[in-house]
Design a protein around this nucleic acid. Sequence first.
DNA 1: CAGACGTGGTG
DNA 2: TCACCAAGTCT
Length: 301
Amino acid sequence: MTSRTPLPPSPAELARLHEDVVTWFASAARDLPWRRGVSPWAVMVSELMLQQTPVARVMPVYEAWMDRWPTPAALAADPPGEAVRAWGRLGYPRRALRLHAAATAIVADHGGQVPRERDALLSLPGVGDYTAAAIISFAFSGRAVVMDTNIRRVFARVVSGVQFPATAVTAAERELATALVPDHVPHVWAAATMELGALVCTARSPRCQECPVAELCGWRAAGYPAHEGPARRGQSWEGTDRQCRGRLMAVLRDAVTAVPKASLDVVWPDVQQRERCLDTLVADGLVEPVDADSFALPGHR
DNA sequence: CAGACGTGGTG
DNA sequence: TCACCAAGTCT
C-alpha cells in the first residue's frame, strides 16, 4: 500500500465530472466507422482489431473486413486462413484466428447473433474482461464497467492523483471504476472517458490545457508528481521469436498458394529458432503443413 | 501473475 | 535516434 487509496468523489463532484466529460465528448468525439450505429458484429470486429493496435492502422483493415464479412456467418463460412490473411499487418495474428473462432461459436451457439450477456461474451475466443464490457457498452448501449488503458489512466490521474495506474488492475481500482459509472447513459460515459484518454489525457504528453476536467484533476492538484513504482517492462524485439514468427507469417500471408519450405528458410538465418517458431505457429493454428515440404495458412485448398 | 504475443508511429 | 506506446487476452 505505497499509494494512497483514492476516496470516491462526493456526489456533487461526481455529477460535475460526468457532465463535463460527456459535454466535452459531444463536441470532441472522433467520427470513427464503428461509432456510426453499426451492428454488434461490427463493434466486436473493431474491438478485437483495436486490442493493442492504434486506430489509424485499424481503420482500412476494418472497412475491408466488414465489406467482405458483414456477419459472423459470412466469416465462419470461410477458412480461418482467409481471416489471418485479411488481418494483414495489424499484428498479433492470433486475434484473427480468435475472431474467426468466435464467429463460428456465435453461429453454432447464438443463432448467428452476437450475444449481449457478459458470460456468453466472455466464453468467446478473444473476448476478455475489457472487450466484453466494450461490446455490452458500445454495441448494446448497456451498463458495464469498461476499463481499458485510456480509462484507467484518466481515473488514475483525475481521481487518484497519480500519473499512471498500477500494472495490473487492483480490486480498489475496479471498485472505483464501478462507483463512477453513472445511472444515466453509462455507455456514453465509457466512450467519453476512453476518448478523453485517447485525445487529451495521453500517456506521453497530456494536453492539460484542453482538458475539460483540469479543475477537478487530482494529479494536477498534486503538482503532477512522477510515477512511483516499477517502470513498465519494455518489449524486446530484435532477434526474438516474435520477430521471427512475424517474418514467417508475412511470407505465408503474401503467398496465394502453399509455400515451399525454402521460401521460409530465407527470411530467418538461425535454423534452430526458425524451426521452433514454425512449430509454434503450427501449434497455434496459424500455419498448416500442406505436405512434407510446404506450408500454408490454415484451411487453404 | 509475469511473460508471450506483432507492428509501426512518434515524442 | 530509439525507447515507449497503442480500445488486451491467454497461460
